[in-house]
């Protein structure tokens, strides 16, 4: 399997990554190099091997259902919002998005 230039551009668009045409070509070649590695791995017989969801063979640790973040007077919020480009009435303001 190998990717076309338009597929690379589409993936870049989905990931909201701006990419020039020279860069897209370089990306395509690199990605196709990775696909070649995957193809080589696909020669391994994996029948009966469960799919791996994580690199470590351990399971999810769970936390008790307790509220540990308390911010009744908005002091944490004010600190978080200090680095936001624009806020108003406790809200983060972003360019208009509406369907």
């Amino acid at each position: 399997m190998s990717l076309t230039l338009s597929e690379v551009e589409r993936i870049a668009h989905l990931a909201r990554i701006e990419i020039g045409s020279a860069e897209a070509e370089a990306c395509r070649d690199q990605l196709n190099g990775i696909f070649a590695l995957i193809e080589a791995m696909q020669a391994v017989d994996t029948a009966g091997v469960p799919p791996m969801a994580h690199a470590q063979d351990v399971c999810q640790r769970l936390r008790e259902d307790r509220v540990t973040h308390h911010d009744p007077d908005g002091r944490w919020r004010d600190r978080f919002q200090a680095v936001a480009p624009e806020t108003e009435a406790g809200l983060y303001l972003v360019p208009k998005v509406i369907e």
Binding site: R66, V67, T68, H69, D73, R77, F80, Q81, Y92
Partner: peptide
């Protein structure tokens, strides 16, 4: 009482972004 992946509360009607960890 708390969110699925954080310790912020899930109560309805709090002031904006005061239950955002």
């Amino acid at each position: 009482a708390s969110k699925i992946f954080s310790g912020a509360a899930t109560a309805f009607g709090a002031a904006p972004n005061t239950q955002a960890a």
